[in-house]
Design a protein around this nucleic acid. Structure first.
Length: 198
DNA sequence: TGCCTGATTGCCT
DNA sequence: GGCAATCAGGCAA
């Protein structure tokens, strides 16, 4: 955990003030760290999806600003957490400069810290079942709608980059579980990483 | 006010 | 590989 902090550094909000697709690709290999009363959990991002603003009918923001989606139109580097299927919560990161909608869905992590805590929260057996899906990783890291709108450059929930960036291949594929714009290759994965969802 | 749909997971066959 | 569970947001009436 201490080594993880010293081997990484927090990212400035300007990191997120770029095109959604750029941010989605650059987030692969970054570390998501959550300091919680129960303990610290952290994982490396191995799978993301880009959701563009108004043109992308699959994005929540395509129908304009609502109470739920307003954070997507606001300043970048914020967390957009939403509840779906009555059970699961998903973590998104707001991209693009303020006023332009766009967000990146975090779909899978490779667990780094607080594995025992994740196992307890998830009731899982295998490490690969801990964070290999958008609803799973929020449960493992205890990310809830309380984090809606939270800054990710500081605070309890943060994004960090390695001082020495890991080498890997990025694969672009169509997004998962949507019907609108299903053929857009906006899903980015760490090619060959076992923690990527199916 | 009420109905319908969904950026999912996990259990059952 | 198929399908139910379960509820908030969006839209129609």
């Amino acid at each position: 955990m201490r080594q993880l902090i010293s081997a990484t550094r927090s990212v400035p909000l300007s990191f997120f003030a770029r095109s959604t697709v750029e941010v989605a690709k650059d987030l692969l290999g970054c570390v998501l760290l959550h300091e919680h009363a129960e303990g610290v959990t952290a994982g490396m991002i191995v799978e993301t999806e880009a959701y563009l603003g108004t043109d992308d009918l699959a994005a929540h923001s395509s129908r304009g600003i609502t109470k739920r989606t307003e954070v997507i139109f606001g300043p970048p580097g914020r967390a957009y957490v939403y509840f779906i299927y009555g059970i699961h919560e998903c973590l998104n990161i707001v991209a693009e400069p303020e006023g332009t909608p766009g967000c990146v869905l975090i779909r899978a992590l490779e667990p780094l810290c607080g594995l025992d805590l994740m196992f307890r929260r998830r009731h899982a057996r295998a490490v690969t079942q801990l964070t290999s899906g958008p609803g799973k990783l929020t449960q493992a890291l205890s990310i809830t709608r309380q984090h809606y709108g939270a800054r990710l450059d500081r605070g309890a929930l943060t994004i960090r980059v390695w001082c020495e960036k890991p080498k890997f291949k990025i694969e672009a594929t169509p997004r998962i579980g949507i019907s609108q714009c299903a053929d857009w290759p906006h899903r980015f994965t760490w090619n060959g990483n076992p923690h990527v969802s199916r």
